[in-house]
Nucleic acid binder design. Structure first.
Lengths: 346, 346
DNA sequence: GTGAAAGCGCTAACAC
DNA sequence: GTGTTAGCGCTTTCAC
């Protein structure tokens, strides 16, 4: 049976209740409960005991209004259901929760479309003490406005100007994966990028690493072998067709994420192509599913990115100094079963 | 160079600023901006224009304190980085954001350990108007307390008592997957469950469906073929060893999630077992990666669970009536490449 | 249709 | 070491 679920609100203990039963002023309760100095040890203990008994917790809205801090952090990501992003969020949330911060997630819609980071400022405005931007940058105006309002900002992925920024060396990612393929003897290598004309910096840099590796080998890549893959499985699936329906198809493909690489493997199986006999595939991330399909990939510790960003955020909000230099986490190539020398070399 | 990032806070327009420049009282501004009646149309328009010019947005903390509502919803999940949960969160967040609600995520630590839902009440207390519990139930005391404080609650997965609860018919999930295996001729079927002694209701029901299907076929399942898989890939990987290192191993395995099924496939490949020739595998979820490995599975629309819950939440908070009957979303078996008749029948 | 004023529950000076 | 008090920026009666 349908019914209204709005219930009569029961009274909650307020700071006044605690003060009254402890026989002290609200100021003392506030100090005691926040661990501030200038409270007699026995007073503090009594107040803490009474607060527990009364199940008192400071109202965050009242606290925020009076103190100007909300103890909440926003994490903005392009899409909440991507493997990479969900792991970043998980890593950040665990650290933030431990430090007593709430985590507000804001999805920006898929790359390039839907809600922009700028609009995300709506939910963010005065609601959070800090913003962790994952693979998304704020416009100059928005950035300036948020900073001038005292918002702490940390970037994961892109470089920040004047804010901590962390991630991986994406040029090196591209170089590593490509050099592996080149070493095996491949010379025609397809690249599955994110979105065409995406402003994101990671794909751009991975491609740059790709080209650097070619140059180091004294070769020149074929730009007609660059196709979009939209950072998801479906995109990778479609990318293979684009790559293979060419006069001179590649013998290997470098996908800028494991999820896109999965799409390639799927499409290859459907076409009756054997990986790595007919086609080599290398990805980026070391997705949980990569060992399952034996995908060769460039490993990074994604959850740690989120945790690291959260720690940096907490440092900033504690008024401590943090490094503004780009922090790159270690990466490494993991060779599994999807890469081998090209057919003509065997 | 390290440096402090705490910046001097610039002033933001307050409701008083808007009232002053519009030449009206703050009460009128408040009414106008929230679309309340009893504001002259031209007054409203003027106020809206001025608010835009001043880039005014109501301070959520002040608003919350005065009105008692926060326009924020908590989504509590066992683990934020699981495929299922990240998709539920994504589905919910999109709907909540559209309706102007913030989404606060709270991870409960892996099933059974770490933070409990009860502790999640900390971040939740007075911080949110509603709580969406995914695959987790509140203790009776906690539930009662939250409800008496006016907290709106929606369950995804478990049944709620007196609150909307949605999900799928998990008994039917178990029956469907098992009947498929039975139809193919399997009689020794392994079950990869979640955590042993997990209080979760979904695994329990899927197992019940499993047993129902056996009964309908006039057979009895072997309880020694029930092993835990912890709902992740690694758990599935280990589960296969437990299942196969038996005197009379199963010819098919039913994993209660696709991620655990992936682990089975991984372990099977490492053992040199061919799926489905040597072993059939069926999962639950229809994970994005399932088409990649050709996994036979029971499909459900996970993001829609989150979206549905969010819509129900918004209804409740709008004071509208919602159904308290269990809402089960459709499911269907998707036959792909990991199931076939057992070896002895071919 | 609009305004005045009383809070909402806390924090932070400042006084003692 | 503790208390008093003035806000924080809104919403919401209750007048007019």
């Amino acid at each position: 049976m349908p019914t209204s679920l709005q219930t009569i609100r029961r009274e909650r203990a307020t700071i006044e209740d605690v003060a009254a039963t402890a026989g002290v002023s609200v100021a003392t309760v506030s100090r005691a409960l926040r661990g501030l100095p200038n409270v007699a040890i026995h007073t503090r203990e009594r107040i803490e005991r009474i607060a527990t008994e009364l199940d008192y917790r400071a109202d965050p809205a009242a606290s925020r209004l009076a103190a100007g801090r909300s103890r909440a952090i926003a994490v903005a990501v392009p899409m909440l259901d991507g493997w990479y992003f969900s792991h970043v969020v998980a890593g950040a949330e665990a650290v933030l929760a431990d430090a007593g911060y709430d985590t507000i997630v804001v999805g920006l819609g898929t790359y390039g479309e839907g809600r922009q980071v700028l609009e995300a400022a709506g939910p963010i405005y005065r609601r959070v003490d800090g913003l962790i931007c994952v693979d998304a940058t704020l416009g100059d105006d928005e950035f300036g406005r948020l900073r001038s309002e005292g918002m702490a900002i940390v970037y994961i992925g892109p470089d920040g100007s004047g804010v901590p920024s962390l991630g991986i060396d994406d040029v090196e990612v591209g170089r590593l994966a490509t050099a592996h393929l080149l070493d095996l003897g491949h010379t025609r290598i397809g690249v599955v990028n994110g979105q065409p004309e995406d402003g994101s910096v990671a794909p751009f840099r991975r491609q740059r690493g790709f080209e650097l590796a070619f140059a180091a080998a004294g070769l020149t890549p074929d730009p007609s072998l660059y196709v979009p893959g939209y950072f998801d499985i479906g995109g990778g699936y479609e990318a293979l067709a684009m790559l293979l329906d060419r006069p001179d198809p590649p013998t290997a493909v470098f996908a800028f994420s494991d999820e896109m690489a999965f799409g390639l493997l799927w499409a290859a199986r459907e076409r009756g192509l054997s990986v790595p006999d007919d086609l080599s595939v290398v990805g980026v991330d070391d997705h949980d599913g990569s060992p399952v399909v034996g995908l060769t990939t460039v490993h990074q510790d994604v959850a740690e990115h989120g945790a690291h960003a959260a720690r940096a955020m907490i440092e900033i909000l504690s008024g401590r100094e943090v490094s503004l230099d780009r922090q790159n986490a270690p990466i490494r190539l993991i060779e599994r079963l999807t890469t081998a020398p090209p057919p003509h070399l065997r």
